[in-house]
């Protein structure tokens, strides 16, 4: 009796988990299948799961329908710049908070942490005004500058830096090692996993970000991929195969990155609740 009960629980567990996986995967599968379908098989009812032939031309069409390479280039530039700038500003500031002494340190830190409470949407309007005044709207600067530092990352890295014994720091100073050299040769390498997680989540977030690039650009040449895709989706009409090919092209870089660096991403999330 007990054994049967156990078997039932096991079966139900796998059943629910598999149903969940199917629910999550369905849009991805449908996106992939639709992206290679010939036009006349897209709107069949009942739908045809597998295409009669694989039509790669949809991808060529997606490239041609929009200035894909321009959008791609913009997305890459913006993502790389945001991530590297954020890492630099974060490492330097976290070091100052973890190891250096200065007046008002705790007050400043508390003030920064308090700003984490504020929803990002509240910043959009004044930031737009600031950037308009600087004449930066429609430039990479506008897409990068507001995101080049993050309180959450500083907070996280400070904890990590503080966990490295201070005796190392004192010993290094005794040996005549300067602060910057100590930071770069001891602290940064010792904090690699945290830094990698922070960087990866930042890459994902900047690559996918939509609202700010939409607002901060109004010229076609400055659009990032998500903005370009959203515009294309209103123009594409029923060319769902091209639209799906375009979508897949946009999500594949982050998916590939996720496949390769899953460990760091999952760790960053489970240990620190990182959201990017």
């Amino acid at each position: 009796m007990k054994k049967w009960n156990n078997r039932f629980v096991k079966a139900a567990t796998y059943g629910i988990l598999t149903a969940g996986a199917a629910f999550i995967l369905l849009p991805f599968v449908w996106m992939i299948l639709t992206s290679v379908k010939p036009g006349n098989e897209v709107l069949l009812m009942p739908p045809r799961w597998l295409p009669s032939k694989i039509q790669w031309e949809n991808y060529v069409k997606a490239f041609q329908a929009v200035p894909f390479m321009t959008y791609f280039k913009n997305s890459v530039i913006v993502t790389v710049c945001i991530t590297s700038c954020e890492l630099i500003t974060t490492v330097l500031a976290a070091f100052a908070f973890a190891r250096l002494e200065f007046k008002g340190k705790n007050l400043l830190f508390m003030l920064l942490v308090a700003t984490m409470m504020v929803p990002g949407e509240i910043l959009v309007i004044p930031n737009f005004v600031t950037l308009a005044k600087l004449g930066w709207i429609n430039s990479y600067k506008a897409l990068i500058a507001p995101w080049a530092a993050s309180v959450f990352s500083i907070f996280l890295l400070r904890q990590q830096f503080a966990s490295i014994p201070e005796s190392y720091y004192k010993a290094a100073r005794m040996d005549g090692c300067g602060d910057l050299r100590y930071l770069l040769t001891v602290m940064v390498p010792m904090s690699r996993p945290t830094l990698v997680s922070v960087a990866l989540l930042k890459v994902i977030n900047s690559w996918n970000s939509y609202l700010w690039p939409l607002i901060a650009t109004n010229e076609k040449t400055m659009r990032t991929l998500p903005v370009g895709l959203a515009y294309f989706s209103t123009e594409a009409g029923v060319q769902y195969n091209t639209l799906m090919a375009f979508s897949l092209l946009i999500i594949s870089p982050t998916l590939i990155m996720y496949a390769l660096t899953q460990k760091y991403i999952i760790q960053g999330v489970s240990k620190n609740g990182l959201k990017g």
Binding site: I24, F28, W30, I204, P226, L229, M257, I266
Partner: peptide, 29 residues
Amino acid sequence: VFQSIYFLPFVTSMVAVSIVWAWMLNKDY
């Protein structure tokens, strides 16, 4: 494997996701 699958939407562009969902939720097709 399950965990990796469940996490997929998190790394995916919400714009792309919304477009596929809109296509899947189309009334006629």
